[in-house]
């Protein structure tokens, strides 16, 4: 089934694709069919730079549910391990 489940959030940071870095200002997180990953459903992450205005400047990830959970947990672990005063931004 298509879940259509989508979260859209504002983000601040940068992403690299190939040789090119871009600032990113928004992200979509959704659980639905992947374009490339060999799975019926995946956790899909799209990062956009709306200041650039080009839809081609997207950095995308398609992860299995377990990989997505591992990623989320790893992010939480490194944030928890870092000095608190460094992780407020």
């Amino acid at each position: 089934m298509c879940t259509y489940l989508t979260e859209r959030i504002a983000v601040e940071g940068s992403a690299k694709s190939g040789e090119r870095w871009s600032a990113v200002s928004s992200a979509s997180v959704y659980f639905d069919h992947p374009v490339h990953a060999y799975a019926e459903h995946s956790v899909n992450l799209d990062f956009f730079d709306h200041r650039d205005g080009s839809p081609a400047r997207r950095v995308a990830l398609e992860l299995t549910p377990s990989a997505a959970r591992e990623l989320a947990a790893a992010i939480e672990r490194v944030l928890a391990s870092a000095p608190a005063e460094l992780t407020t931004g």
């Binding site: 989508t6 859209r8 979509s28 956009f48 839809p55 081609a56 997207r58």
Partner: peptide, 17 residues
């Protein structure tokens, strides 16, 4: 309209967003 020259998956991501 949103992404006239983008690849289909990039256009779909933009429209979904």
């Amino acid at each position: 309209r949103e992404a006239p020259d983008a690849s289909p998956d990039d256009a779909a991501a933009i429209v979904r967003a």
